[in-house]
Structures are given as C-alpha cells and as structure tokens.
Design a protein around this nucleic acid. Structure first.
Lengths: 188, 188
DNA sequence: AAACAATGCTAACAATTGTTAGTTTTGTAA
DNA sequence: TTACAAAACTAACAATTGTTAGCATTGTTT
C-alpha cells in the first residue's frame, strides 16, 4: 500500500507533466490526492520539495545506471546498447518523472538547478566518452562526436513522449529498433 | 526599426523560453520592453494572444516548408535532406520560438491547443510518408517507420537547444553532420 | 495653434498563489 | 477508557496574477 507521501509525489508528477510546475497549484495536487491543500504540509515541506524529490530521484537512476555501464568491462558499442536499454527502461517505468526531468528542471531554485545541470553535464560527458571510444576503436565512422552524442541523446530523451502515445509496442522490440536506427543507421 | 508589438513578441519569446509561459508575468514582459504592464494592452489583446502568435507563426513556417518539400519532384531521400535543412534553418533563425513550440504549446487554451496538435499530427504524417517512400523505393532498410520518424524528429526538435550551446559551428556544417548521423548511420 | 489618435501612466479590481496558525478528527498504544 | 501522535480541517495571510478604467502625455495632421 502506498503512503500518502508517495501518493502526493505520484499525483504531482502527473500534474507537473500535464500543466507544468508553475501551472500546477497546491490545491490541484490536493484535489488529486483527495485532501485539502493545507493538509499536504503534514507530509511535505514545500511545493519546491516535491519538484526536487521527483527530479533528483530519477536523475539518480540515470547517473547510477551510467556509472555501472561506464565502469563495466564491456566494449564501447555494447555500452551504448546498454545505455539505450537504460533509457528505454526508465522511460517506460517512470514516464512522468522523466518528462519532468526534461521540461521542468528550470523551475528548481538556483542552488538545486546548478546541482542538476552539473549532474546532467557529467552524464553527457561520460556518454560522449563512450561514443569517442566507439570511433577510436573503429566501431564508428569518423563523425563529429558532439553531434553524434546530441543525435542519440535527443532521441533517447524524447522516448517518454513517444512511449506514452504508443503503448502497444514491447519495450524489448522498442529497444531493438532504437539500436537499429540510432547505431546501425537507416541507409541500405 | 522594430515596432513595439514586435518588441513585445521578442521579449516574450525570450522570457517564455527561460521561465515558461506560466512562469512569466505581464510585468516581467513589461520590464523587458521598458514600459508599465498596463501599457502592453495598447498593443496586444491578452497574454494568451502572445503565446498564440509566437507559436502559430513558427508552426506556419514548418508546415509551409513541409508542403513545399512534400509537393516537390525530389526523390524521398532528397526530401529528407531538405527537411533536415528546414529544421536547421528555423532552429538557427528562430531559436526562442522553436523552443516555445516544443515546450509551451500545452498552455494554449483548449481550442488553439487542438488546432496546434492537429497541425503537428499532419506534419508528422507527411514526414512519415516520406520515410516510408525511402523504404519502399529501396533507399532505407526495412525499419519500423514510426520509430525511424520518431528518431529523426526528436533529434531535429532538440536542435534549438543544442545550437544555443554550440554557436561556433556553421549551420552548413551542422546540416552535413546531421545528414550523416541521422540518415547514413554511425556504424562503419 | 487646434484637433486627434496613439501610447503611456497610476490606481485599482477580483482571483489565485504558497503557506501558516489554530483546531478538530482519526487511529493506535497504554 | 485514556492518552497521544498523526493527519485532517477551516480560516486566514500577504503576495502576485491578468486585466480594466480613467487620465496624462506624446507626436502627427489639419
């Protein structure tokens, strides 16, 4: 059974995704939970805390996943496949939270925002390093690694959006197709 | 010389991008323009009108561009290249507005929101048709066209964000690299 | 100079915001 | 049953929101 605090986070994630952080009032959240707005404060400290919790929880899952993959003994191409798998899994399991991490981090208060962008930059750096390894070890052509990173990452970031519109595809199939499109290429 | 109305749209685009539509007040916009909030209403009808104008202006540029390319006599692969070129150009020339089209359309009021999603769906359908032509005419492998569409489009949508962080690259070079990554593929 | 419209200003409005204080209800342990 | 803590409620707060009304200033046309 879910605790009230968890309920609040769940409802908030759904509403933040639909109307944004600023566009969602504490009274909206309260209504979703089935309680008066003031009662929320028996469980949480502030509205900002909700955003912070939602965002850093899923950010942590990404960075943990990245570290495991990055530190593994797989070859760089296999690492990329694992990263795609990570993104697919998190997009499927935490659709709303992933949506928020992408669109609503700007509404974190200054200190938390800096912390978040730091995490994100580190994540992107590690991602890029793996792509560069793919190039130097001869798996990839001599493409601009920045642009390859950007191309892959933006697709992975959008996964949550696409997945919520096309639930019928299995995540295994989705993963396979993503590898084909992103890593192998479309051209015959 | 820019009219006051154009100034308002310009400032609004910048602020909407930074803090979102709901997170930007009319007083914020007024300060950016150098005027009192009430004075804005000599030039515009409402805050919603600003969002509507910004959004549908750039949406129109996308649909016009798509129609020209779609109706042309180019082969489907050339059409895709033209589409990439279109997205690069609009991301460079209208960075803020493109950002808004992606993140803030949810704050359109109901009727306009439906109109917008209609435009977007049509756009995506035409995009997908071109990809399907690429497959059936033998330019592309037998990939899932939905996923190929999604992969390409999400990268193109994220262009504005990447471009604002990496201004030094020329848009010609950017375009070339995008074609390589998105259409040809990374694998050696 | 007189007349005019365009555009600015101040002041105010009703509604909504996040949050707090104080009190009552609920559920559990003694 | 009594006692106590958890969690709900009502009421209210100061601030901010988009917008309007009414008036002053500006610049242009007669």
């Amino acid at each position: 059974m879910k605790s009230k605090k968890e309920q609040i986070f769940e409802v908030s994630a759904r509403l933040f995704r639909k109307r944004g952080y600023v566009g969602t009032s504490m009274r909206d959240i309260a209504k979703g939970v089935g309680v008066e707005a003031a009662s929320l404060y028996n469980h949480i400290k502030s509205k900002q805390e909700i955003l912070h919790e939602l965002l850093f929880d899923v950010a942590g899952r990404f960075t943990t996943g990245m570290d495991e993959i990055s530190d593994s003994s797989l070859n760089p191409l296999q690492k990329l496949e694992k990263l795609i798998s990570l993104h697919v899994r998190l997009a499927v399991e935490h659709t709303d939270a992933v949506s928020i991490i992408i669109g609503e981090w700007v509404h974190l208060e200054e200190a938390a925002k800096n912390e978040y962008t730091g995490l994100r930059d580190t994540y992107e750096e590690k991602f890029k390093a793996i792509i560069q390894d793919c190039i130097s070890e001869g798996h990839f052509k001599q493409v601009n690694p920045e642009i390859a990173l950007f191309s892959i990452l933006s697709t992975l970031r959008w996964l949550y959006s696409w997945y919520s519109r096309n639930r019928e595809i299995s995540s295994v199939e989705l993963e396979k197709q993503m590898i084909e499109c992103l890593l192998v290429g479309l051209k015959k």
